[in-house]
Amino acid sequence: MHVIETLVVSETALGSVPAQWDEARAVTSLYGEHYGTLVRLAALLVRDVATAEEVVQDSFVAMHTSWRKLRDTEKALSYLRQSVVNRSRSVLRHRVVVDRNAPMPPPLVPSAEQGAITELERSAVVSALRRLPPRQREALVLRYYGDLSEAQIASAMGISRGAVKSHTARGMSSLRTVLQLEF
C-alpha cells in the first residue's frame, strides 16, 4: 500500500520540479523519487525485472535527451510514465516476435531475476493479469497499482478516456472470470 501512497504523494510533489532545472538535476531528482515505482510498474507490465529496469532507464535517458523539448517540465513524471508504458508495450511486442520465431530454452539454473518472476507469477491475480490483452493489462495496472485517474491513464496510454473505461471494464470482467474459474 505504501507504494500507492508514494506514487500519489510524488504526483503531487512533482510540481516542485522547477522549470529552470537542467536535465541532469531533474533526472537525479526524479530518479530518487520515482525510479522504484516506475520499475515496479514496468515489471508488472513486462513481467521481467531486468527488462523493467532497462525500460525505465531508457525512459530516463530519453527524458534527459529531450528535456529542452518538454513544454511543461513540471509534467516530467507524466512524460516518464507514458514513456515507460510505451516502451513496455514495445518490449512485449518484440517478445512476441522473438517467441514466435525462436523460442528460447529455459535456463538450467534459475537466476535471481527468474526467482523474482516466479514470485510474481505465484500471485493468482498477477498470473491472471498475464493472460489479459496488453491494453487491458496496462489499464488495470495503471488503475489499481498506479492508482491513476482515468485522465492520467488515458495520457499514459495515449488513448481516450472512453477507451480507458472500456479497457478497464473488459479487463475486470475477464479477470473476474479467470479468477472464478481457478478458485
Binding site: 515496479r40 510498474l41 508488472l44 495496472v141 489499481y144 497499482y145
Partner: peptide, 9 residues
C-alpha cells in the same frame, strides 16, 4: 486486485 498487485510489486 489492488492488494495483490501491491503485494506482487
Amino acid at each position: 486486485i489492488r492488494r495483490a498487485l501491491c503485494a506482487a510489486s
